[in-house]
């Protein structure tokens, strides 16, 4: 299976690897997947309470190259977006950007779920209305 250059770049030089303080009120954490399934993705966002914009995003992922690239790309896209804009990120956009092969589409689904999980965590923590709809997956 040949991977796209973009995917390989995100795999070899993953962006925004790391950990934000999950106890901080401005941080939302999404943890999705399961070790038994071979994928665990943790995606975190730092939200500016004034502007509701995402100022920072970090990830750590246990998984295949496509899972790592999908989460790396997601963090890149999240930075600078408002929470509402972030919620609009669709897994198929990740599939297209990285040219994921069909057997790897679940990696992009996981990334979308991780984004939604992080936003939901942030909203719940801050007593905001939860605008995350259940993911379609």
């Amino acid at each position: 299976m040949a991977y796209s250059d973009k995917l390989l770049d995100h795999f070899k030089n993953p962006r925004n690897v790391g950990t934000l303080d999950k106890n901080s009120t401005g941080v939302g954490t999404g943890l999705v997947g399961a070790p038994e399934c071979g994928d665990v993705m943790r995606l975190q966002i730092q939200v500016d309470p004034e502007t509701q914009k995402i100022t920072d995003a970090k990830f750590k992922t246990f998984g295949c190259g496509s899972a790592i690239a999908s989460s790396s790309l997601a963090t890149e896209w999240l930075k600078g977006k408002s929470v509402d804009e972030a919620l609009a990120i669709d897994n198929m956009a990740i599939v297209e950007e990285l040219a994921l092969p069909p057997v790897k589409i679940h990696c992009s689904v996981l990334a979308e779920d991780a984004i939604k999980g992080a936003i939901k965590d942030y909203q719940e923590k801050n007593g905001l209305e939860v605008t995350v709809t259940e993911s379609a997956h």
């Binding site: 993953p14 690897v17 950990t19 943890l31 070790p35 665990v40 993705m41 943790r42 750590k60 992922t61 246990f62 790592i68």
Partner: peptide, 10 residues
Amino acid sequence: HMRELSPIWE
């Protein structure tokens, strides 16, 4: 390298 990236390792 992969453990640095792995949330379960952390």
